[in-house]
Design a protein around this nucleic acid. Structure first.
Length: 472
RNA sequence: GGCGCUAUCGUCUAGCCUGAUCUAGGACGCUGCCCUCUCAAGGCAGAAACACGGGUUUAAAUCCCGUUAGCGCUACCA
């Protein structure tokens, strides 16, 4: 146990976004590793823009990410009297003065040294600073005042925040000195940018934590990726659980330069986590995820509000795949006759196992496995024509259909394998000469898990129906 | 404009403090190969970087100076 106390201080003027999470995460990691406290403060002094919904959203996101905090929330809106008191004290001491209804802090002209844990010593000359408004004419404190008062009252020992606050720090130090308060230690984190080098914003795609949650990212995947943006352990390890991060984190190893957010690597990290967690956790999580997403059968392919083509991710399964490009316009109603959803538990279990190595987010499952939930859509007309115009392939498929009629149920994957290959061999062809067309018939595409597992899962009835439907 | 921060493969980064072990290492992505019924996953291989210019030194990615570029701050936003 140490007496280290850090805080994350979001403004409830929007959703918790990627940059905020990174700041929160580094504070959290530092506190947990040092055995200190991680506090949460809501900076809601901007009356116009602060909304309770946003606060709820931020708190929800923090919980989902597993960044649990200590002690009670602090709301700046409930501490207005305290800020006024401090401002009055400054005025009484002659260190601040009224100006057009506001109160301004008189900046002492001096050299101010900031000792930053990640950047070292940075020197400012306060001659460059104008006197600082600390209380607005509406009686509300300005950010600078509220921050130093709260940090002091909350006993904050380390302020870990974005680099954009570095130039504010000397002003804060001056304010602390005027009040006779000890300054906390500072650590300024590099900023996160989009792929075009500009600050991360909606233009760059998903920035809100909730969007990642809706797409089926794992909290530990997002946390893991963000931890690597601006920090590294100095070892080749890249995949970490939250406890591992806590163990290895160090402010000393925080990078100084700004970083670009790379959605592709995030996807990769998330995929690694999908494969790293226990089978039980995987089943529980992905099932829960899809349970929440599928309230009505007709919504099945919608992949939530996060329709595949509006996200900025080159997600496998929808990228460049014209089959199921749009959640809103899906044709599942028209093609619903093969619907096998709700999927029996046993089938669902097999299905998610089949797709575990193929998905990078839980949201990808039903995009990639769409043909399990609706009839396949044969978009590649050329390929379809090729198959239909080949007398030998059509004959092969017909024959296969007949052979499969006698197979019984499709539980025995090995049996399906043997029978199918026998049909090909009897015709003097290679197994793949029948497997590939068969895959197209059954899925409408050219990519899928192993064909025999697929057949078994789809079941005899649907396989034969699709086969006949295709050949008619 | 002023002040400040930063600068290694396309991207995230190791190395820089304590100069020689760096013909610069890893990861994502990309390419090829293996595996294989396709797609993945997995394995292997490859292309790909020390911003530029000066110093200091026997020796510089590493130290110093300058330039350039990017970013931040310069609000009665936070």
């Amino acid at each position: 146990m140490s007496d280290i106390r850090v805080r994350f201080a979001p403004s409830p003027t929007g959703f918790l976004h990627i940059g905020g999470v990174r700041t929160a995460l580094f504070n959290y990691l530092y506190a947990r590793q040092q055995g200190g406290k991680f506090l949460l403060r809501i900076e809601d002094t901007d009356q116009q823009r602060s909304m309770p919904e946003f606060e709820r959203e931020i708190l929800d996101s923090m919980k989902w990410l597993g960044l649990d905090w200590d002690e009670d929330l602090v709301h700046q809106s409930k501490r207005l009297d305290r800020y006024r008191e401090v401002a009055r004290e400054l005025v009484a001491k002659g260190l601040a003065y009224e100006f057009e209804g506001a109160i301004k802090f008189r900046i002492p002209k001096t050299e101010v040294k900031v000792y930053d844990i990640v950047r070292g010593e940075v020197t400012y000359d306060s001659k460059e600073f104008d006197d600082l408004v600390i209380m607005k004419s509406d009686g509300y404190p300005v950010f600078h005042l509220a921050v130093i008062v709260d940090d002091h009252d909350m006993g904050i020992t380390h302020v870990v925040r974005g680099e954009d606050h570095l130039p504010n720090t000397p002003r804060h130090i001056l304010l602390q000195q005027a009040l006779g308060w000890k300054s906390p230690k500072y650590a300024h984190l590099p900023l996160i940018f989009g792929s075009d080098g500009t600050p991360l914003s909606k233009r760059h795609g998903a920035v809100a934590v909730s969007e990642y949650r809706n797409k089926g990212f794992l909290p530990q995947g997002l946390v893991n990726y963000l931890a690597l943006l601006g920090w590294n352990p100095g070892t080749p390890q890249e995949i970490f659980s939250l406890p591992e991060l806590v163990k290895q984190f160090s402010l000393k190893r925080v990078i100084k330069s700004n970083a670009q957010f790379n959605p592709e690597k995030l996807l990769w990290v998330n995929g690694q986590h999908i494969r790293a967690i226990s089978g039980e956790d995987y089943e529980k999580q992905i099932t829960e995820f899809w349970k929440e997403k599928s309230h009505s059968p007709s919504k099945e392919l919608k992949v939530n509000g996060a329709s595949p083509n509006t996200n900025q991710f080159p997600t496998r399964g929808n990228w460049g795949n014209p089959d199921y490009p749009n959640g809103k316009e899906n044709k599942s109603q028209d093609r619903g006759q093969d619907k096998i959803d709700p999927v029996p538990e046993e089938k669902w279990r097999k299905l998610i196992t089949l797709y575990r190595p193929r998905i990078q987010t839980y949201g990808e499952l039903k995009v990639q496995a769409a043909y399990f939930f609706a009839s396949p859509e044969y978009k590649d007309l050329q390929l379809m024509a090729e198959i239909k115009n080949s007398a030998s392939v059509v004959g092969l498929l017909k024959q296969l259909g007949e052979v499969l009629e006698d197979v019984g149920d499709f539980e025995d994957v090995e049996m399906l394998d043997q029978k199918t290959k026998q049909v090909a061999e009897a015709a003097g062809l290679k197994p793949k000469d029948i497997i590939h067309p068969l895959r197209f018939v059954l899925t409408g595409g050219t990519a899928s898990p192993g064909i025999f597992e697929l057949m078994s899962l789809l079941g005899k009835e649907i396989c034969l129906k699709r086969l006949k439907g295709f050949l008619d």
